[in-house]
């Protein structure tokens, strides 16, 4: 899809969300530019997952606006009706959940999981859908011979890669990643990160990734947002934030990374 590099892909302005008395997101503003990977880090309960769900249209904000670049123009997502938003979600966006079982259909085969978005976009040729599914299995390093197997026969890492394939099959412009390496062991994490990095640079994806793992953030993201108690406390280039953290909490976060 043609994109206007002169305006942001996503623009978040003064976003608020509270759950009762708990302020989950307070006055959040930032921009995401085409081709960028933005990392959101912070401790548990800092509001980073809520922020991701707000932007992805899975939650409704109390206040504030979210704009998204479509056909070289910024459209306001918060004004969009539900069918239009759902269409956006299944064509131009992807959402990779922390737990593969939240993002996959566990009772249909890997091929059907990848094909679902295509069929939702009116693909009606079985052979073509299958070909595309095989292509994407290969792209995420799953043996295409397992196309008819159920996701529950896959390992945790494979399930996560399948979830990524299922999201990327429609060539989305924007992918939301919620702790994509969450439940995986370190060697599998490394492999998945490698794969993600390759996909992001080859496809020119823009992404917003929530993680509490600074190593993951460093490897994948170009810019970093640090959140604490629902507010952005630091915002900058990844290397800059990690090498020279300004806010006290960021300093604590960076210094608390275990060194081996």
């Amino acid at each position: 899809m043609k994109m206007n590099p002169g305006i942001p892909l996503l623009k978040v302005e003064n976003l608020h969300k509270a759950f009762g008395k708990t302020k989950a997101c307070h006055d959040i503003s930032f921009e995401l530019w085409p081709g960028e990977v933005l990392g959101i880090v912070g401790e548990s309960g800092s509001g980073k997952s809520t922020l991701l769900r707000l932007i992805a249209g899975l939650l409704e904000p109390d206040k504030g606006t979210i704009s998204y670049q479509q056909n070289s123009k910024l459209i306001t997502l918060t004004d969009l009706d539900e069918p239009a938003l759902r269409h956006l979600q299944r064509t131009e966006w992807g959402f990779v959940h922390q737990h593969p079982s939240d993002g996959l259909r566990m009772n249909v085969s890997a091929g059907a999981n990848i094909g679902e978005r295509l069929m939702a976009n009116n693909w009606r040729h079985y052979g073509n859908i299958r070909e595309k599914a095989q292509h994407w299995l290969k792209a995420v390093e799953i043996d295409p011979a397992r196309i008819d197997d159920l996701p529950r026969t896959f390992s945790g890492g494979m399930q996560q890669r399948l979830q990524i394939a299922r999201n990327l099959v429609t060539n989305p412009n924007l992918v939301f990643l919620d702790e994509p390496t969450g439940g995986l062991d370190v060697s599998v994490q490394a492999k998945l990160l490698d794969l993600l990095r390759g996909l992001v640079s080859n496809l020119g994806l823009s992404a917003i990734m929530v993680t509490h793992d600074l190593a993951v953030a460093r490897l994948l993201s170009t810019r970093l947002i640090v959140m604490k108690q629902g507010e952005i406390i630091e915002h900058g280039l990844t290397d800059q934030v990690l090498e020279d953290p300004q806010a006290a909490y960021s300093q604590l976060l960076v210094s608390s990374v275990l060194q081996v």
Binding site: P83, V108, S109, G111, A112, G115, M119, A120, I129
Partner: peptide
């Protein structure tokens, strides 16, 4: 939003 219905038919053919 009927993509899911074809997922069932896809699954039939693949199995």
């Amino acid at each position: 939003d009927y993509g899911l219905m074809h997922v069932k038919l896809y699954e039939d053919i693949s199995q």
